[in-house]
Structures are given as C-alpha cells and as structure tokens.
C-alpha cells in the first residue's frame, strides 16, 4: 500500500522544529540520524538546508499570546462557544483545513493548555470561533475565562488525511459528523465548497435539539441531514448504513470525512471500505495533545506496522490506522 506520510509543519515558518534539532525529523533523513538524502515527502523546500541556514537551530517555537474574548455563548449547559479577537496573521493562518489552537486561562499553569479546533476564522474582523465541551479539568478551566484568554498557534493537524480533502475539485464529499467533533469539519466544508465540491453532511445532533454547526453548514450551501447514528450498543444503525450506501452509489463520493471519536472513525471506515475500497478518508484528529510540537509524546499512536506516529504533526492515511485486517 502507498505510504502516505507528511508533516503538517514541513516547509512552514515553524520548520525545522525541535524534532529536527534532536535528530527526530519526521520527513528529512539527514535530520533523522542518516547521512544521505532520502526524504519521505517533498513540499518544495529542503528541511536540511533550512536547518543549516538557520544556524543549525530550530525555528522559534509557538508561544501563548493574550487575546480578548468578544463573545461567550452557551450552546448547551456543557458546550461553550467563544469568539476571540486575534491578530491578522493568526486569523489568516487559522483559516485553513485542520486548523487548531491551544487555549489556556492566564492564571493556570502550562499543563492546562488544551487543543481546540477552529470552527471559523473571519479574516476581515480577525475573530476566530471555537466550541468547547466541558469534559475534564482543562476544558473546565477554559470555561472560567471571561474577558481574556491565552492562545497559542497556529496548528494545522486537526484533520488527518487532509490531502484527500485538498485534492478534491468539482467533486463530492460526504461528512459524517457527531457532537463537538463537527467544529473542524465546518472549516473543511468551507474549503471544499470553494473548490466547487458538493458537500453532503449527515449530522448527529447528539443530546441536543440540533447540532450547533448546522447553521454554518447550511450557510455554506451544504446539504445537511439530521441523524442519530448509533444504536444502544454503540453501532451505526442499520437505517443509516443503508442510507450511506445509497448516498455513495448516488453521489460517487471520492472522500469521506469522519468526525467523531476514534471508535466512530473505525466503524465508519471499516463499513464504507467494504462498500467501495477506493474511497479515501479524512478523520478528525482526536489524539490527546499537550504540547503540539511532537515533543511530549502524548499524541503518539501506532500505525499499521506498529510504527510510532506523532499525530500532532504527522499526517497519515486514516485507512492505515483505522482499517482492520488489511495491510
């Protein structure tokens, strides 16, 4: 199988990073303990060259900056939407598929910093919108932010398999989305629509009356259908399996974007692969992240060959991670 490896930061202003400095670059063989070129992906710049010309140092790491919260809105008692006024550069950078930031209350320690996907980024007003679900200690701490918040970014690896979304033009894409995981898919849908793709969204409303992202999808011109994917055993209901199959036949989707838990991704991908093995997948990145720089190791998952994937930076083909029983 074609090995799709990419580092989302490769060739960006944040490359070479600390991984390169310590001989752990995801892409460059010369910055991974080897003496000759054998880079795993090419994005138009030589990381080794950038490293040497940067004085054998990594580029500056992203840092927290303080920004104003311009609007707080509870979508449900445990779901908070924040509008944050950031600077021009950040709003521009965050207006991209898979964009996310780390957020933190100023009074809290570094360990509280939590990754949050961008729902939308308005490059005119420089206001980014994020949706946070209260789950544990870090999200609770964000809920305490009133007027100001610390933001660190931009980060881009919030969606895996981005290649399969970015290469779609004049085509069609199916989005299967549950809960707050739908937030990053709104931005993805925006980019898909710009590239003249039809976007069909099956949107799970969860415990709410309707999913908060529905109006966003509708305003982008997506076709949206409210669903409730899972039965009591946590399996995709028969009626939706049937519907997905019919939609695939009708629309001939080239890519399916799955937005839910990893368990949901696995169910979706294994089911759809049996219908059509040539469909590509993109998945919302659910990995636990603490630093976002590939250093802390909390985001490391295992690929199909048991190789370590630093999923905060590395792009993988979701089939390689979630598909069972093939290689």
């Amino acid at each position: 199988m074609f090995k799709y490896i990419d580092c989302i930061d490769a060739g960006s202003p944040y490359c070479p990073c600390e991984l390169a400095l310590k001989g752990e670059c995801i892409i460059c063989s010369q910055l991974h303990g080897k003496e000759f070129c054998d880079c795993l992906n090419w994005k138009g710049t030589c990381i080794y060259q950038e490293f040497i010309w940067n004085g054998y140092k990594s580029k500056k790491i992203r840092e927290f900056k303080k920004f104003k919260i311009v609007k707080r809105e509870y979508l449900r008692e445990d779901i908070l939407k924040l509008d944050i006024k950031v600077n021009k550069e950040l709003s521009r950078d965050l207006n991209d598929i898979g964009a996310f930031v780390f957020l933190k209350n100023e009074k809290d320690a570094e360990a509280f910093s939590t990754p949050i996907s961008i729902l939308s980024s308005d490059i005119e007003t420089d206001i980014i919108t994020v949706v946070i679900k209260r789950e544990g200690i870090k999200s609770k701490a964000i809920f305490e932010c009133q007027d100001e918040i610390l933001v660190k970014g931009p980060y881009f690896n919030g969606i895996q398999g981005q290649k399969y979304l970015k290469e779609l033009k004049n085509n069609s894409c199916l989005i299967l989305s549950r809960g707050v995981a739908s937030a990053p898919t709104v931005l993805a849908a925006k980019k898909l629509k710009i590239n003249k793709n039809e976007v069909y969204v099956l949107l799970d409303r969860g415990r709410s009356r309707e999913n908060f992202s529905k109006p966003y999808f509708l305003s982008l011109g997506c076709i949206v259908e409210d669903v409730s994917f899972l039965n009591i055993d946590g399996e995709i209901k028969y009626e939706y399996k049937k519907e997905i199959e019919q939609l695939i036949k009708k629309w001939n989707f080239k890519t399916v974007l799955s937005a839910g838990s990893d368990d949901f991704h696995e169910k979706v991908i294994n089911f759809i692969y049996k219908i059509d093995k040539y469909i590509n997948f993109a998945t919302v990145n659910n990995s636990t992240m603490c630093c976002g720089e590939g250093i802390c190791g909390s985001c490391i998952i295992k690929g199909s060959n048991n190789e370590k994937i630093r999923s905060c930076k590395q792009q993988y083909n979701p089939k390689e991670v979630f598909l069972r029983g093939i290689n």
């Binding site: 460059c28 063989s29 010369q30 003496e35 000759f36 070129c37 880079c39 030589c46 990381i47 080794y48 060259q49 040497i52």
Partner: peptide, 14 residues
C-alpha cells in the same frame, strides 16, 4: 546527483 541536502552536506549547497 543531488538532491539538495546531499549537495549541501557534501558540496557547497544547492
């Protein structure tokens, strides 16, 4: 020949 990283490490750059 090349690529860039080799031309840099074993030569005088691209």
């Amino acid at each position: 020949t090349g690529p860039m990283g080799n031309c840099l490490r074993y030569g005088k750059g691209c």
